[in-house]
Amino acid sequence: MTDGIRSVVTPHTNGMIELRNVYKSFGNHHVLRGVNLTVAAGEGMVVIGGSGTGKSVILKHIIGLMQPDAGEVIIDGQNLADLSERDLFEFRKRFGMLFQGAALFDSLTVWENVAFGLKEHRFLAKDEMMEIARQKLTKVGLSGIEEKMPADLSGGMKKRVGLARAIAMNPKIILYDEPTTGLDPIMSDVINQLISEMNRDLAVTSVTITHDMKSAYSIANKIAMLYHGEILEVGTPEEIQNSDNPVIQQFIHGRSEGPIQID
């Protein structure tokens, strides 16, 4: 127990992520078949791949919502499997996550959503929490909606509130689950710019999963393609664009004809 806590508190929090040979199946459906992926501290990694290929499953492994059937998930040198359940919750404080549907708590107001982590984990006065929430909302371009309920917001606003909530605790690692899915092209661009800004200004490590190539190019330092449960190729956006792998070429250009089978 003490060991677990000590390893959690070690100031070794630069945000490095390593997936080593990760396997995951659901029944007979083998989603991850030996995923190897390293994300260096401060890097903006984008994982691309078709719908239903297990991209979200990768994110859920990184933040410990799912455990691999085999293989290891190592964050800042800490193997998540070695943490007790309690320590894992503690460990998650270094993460922020933006969910596909924003996943705002619909019984709480906008500012209460943004300040949720602060309220749970920091001993702050209500005014201070509200002030931080307001700052984070301003950072994502929102103001004057603190007292609204999530149900009263548009999809793009929800995403931005979700982003404000994700950065409220100043995380070292931010995970984005399809940040532009379901948004119009202009709002997608707003979100892409916000993510790029976050990566630059907050010096965080980020992992984004998407199948929106425009989004991928604008956010990524590096792009990894997930195909058949494995990472097919990792490279800078230019390297991926110039890849001679026909699977990657088909995917990034969005062609229906090619080696990727559509079922």
Partner: peptide, 14 residues
Amino acid sequence: VTEQVDALATLAVD
């Protein structure tokens, strides 16, 4: 189903 339960966990709340 709207991932609010997962969101709680990612905010380090059981």
